[in-house]
Design a protein around this nucleic acid. Structure first.
Lengths: 248, 248
DNA sequence: CGGACATTTGACGCGTCTCAACAACAGTGG
DNA sequence: CCACTGTTGTTGAGACGCGTCAAATGTCCG
């Protein structure tokens, strides 16, 4: 929900030469709190989440990464990782060394601009979620989540019509919406009973998108900066190969 | 709560030559949604808030600016303002032309780094608030808010001991905590009855900071990047005068 | 003194959490 | 092939936090 960089529709990316592929199993930790980040991860398959653990074992998901997203733009900074990342499903991605991007940042103005813009929209999306979680009931929260997930997967070329993946358990949904898994279940049932959604086997179909948007108070604008540069694309672009060649 | 740039303790700033002072009355709009931002505002007196208006007239405050903060770092970007800013009290600030800062950004690497780091911590703080609002009850939310406000005012040299300003109505507090003004009142009373706080005449005194931190689940680290550059200070620094001279 | 606004109090209803089961299902090993 | 085990999804009953409506009190300022 909160990660914004994404690729053009369905596009394949050629990884930079110094990048390499990685994979994790579901529930595996991708990054721990306090770690020094050395790579930015461009997700190619599967979903991951940024998690805030609270004292009593409750976890709140504060960002969601889907294919095409850059997992943790802010790992460019030297500071230790603030919140852990965990794989929600089988996960694959391309790791791009942060040092390499930092290096390129000194030369390439478009990259610099793309990063700051990306940072802005990350923050904007979070403040939208903040309002969503603070002020809406469970039905609106889940509806808002579904609206966002469809919109993002559409933008990434991963949705067909009003149908998209949802590789999450009800427990994951609960951690996103800030409610109990049990209440999540009841909320989903009421959405189904209202004829708003279908949800079977990790696939989500939205039956009445207009009504769902109304219930959610969803405003698509916060997701997509006008004339957005595609951060993941820029990060993976050929310039990094030149850098690697120069370094060799 | 969510704005992070701040000045060294109690320090006075000499405004850049092309900057000018501005003031607003309480409740006055500082910036409207959709406006093109032309200035960054370094707050010198009073408090302002970033507001998300929801359909039913409910407002959720998504960021709070106190003296020493930079009001809306992201106004550096060309995109229209995403959420309006409103003065919560009599407000004064120094307006620094965004174009000027953008200009300096091309030359000055430290400024560029400071801005990206500031962006990161803005986003970190928001995700902390997101978890706070999603997962805690009203008592913890208010406690968390008070912990943050004391910490930030301390860092800005605006607190004495466990005592600081709180120029907000209970209605403002409610809009911050995402609860009803009426329930805010009851929550405050229970905090008072527990001997945790004193609150009279726009002044807040925290009587038992340890217990309040425990109730809030407050973790100060999210507020202050290690070895933070002081963004407001850098923005107002003399380099901008040189720029102005060169332009003249 | 009057009027607007902020704070406080009470009664009631609803949404969500908690605790406790149970059913459906997938993966594992015999 | 089936029994075993852990995860996921589902259902019910009771308690509690918070919202809502209504109204009284306090406070600041013209």
């Amino acid at each position: 929900m909160l990660a914004l960089s994404r690729l053009a529709t369905g596009q394949r990316l050629s990884p930079a030469s110094s990048s390499n592929h990685r994979r994790w199993r579901a529930r595996e930790m991708v990054a721990r709190e306090g770690d020094r980040p050395e790579f930015l991860l461009v997700i190619t398959q599967g979903w991951a989440a940024r998690v805030r653990m609270l004292r009593d074992g409750i976890r709140q998901i504060t960002a969601l990464y889907i294919p095409g997203d850059v997992c943790e733009l802010f790992w460019l900074e030297e500071s230790p990782i603030a919140q852990p990342i965990v794989a929600l499903s089988e996960l694959r991605g391309t790791a791009v060394p942060a040092a390499e991007i930092r290096q390129r940042t000194r030369q390439e103005t478009p990259l610099r601009n793309a990063i700051l813009r990306e940072a802005q929209w990350t923050a904007e999306a979070r403040s939208e979620w903040l309002a969503n979680l603070a002020r809406r009931d469970s039905t609106s929260r889940i509806a808002h989540l579904f609206c966002e997930l469809l919109a993002r997967q559409r933008a990434a070329g991963l949705a067909s019509g009003n149908c998209c993946d949802l590789p999450l358990t009800q427990h994951d949904l609960a951690d996103l919406a800030g409610i109990t898994p049990i209440h999540t279940n009841r909320t989903l049932q009421s959405l189904r009973a209202e004829g708003l959604i279908e949800l079977r086997g990790k696939r989500l179909r939205i039956l009445d998108i207009d009504r769902l948007i109304a219930i959610a108070g969803f405003d698509e604008r916060y997701l997509f900066p006008p004339d957005a540069p595609r951060t993941a694309e820029i990060i993976l672009s050929t310039a990094s190969e030149e850098m690697a060649d120069a370094a060799a």
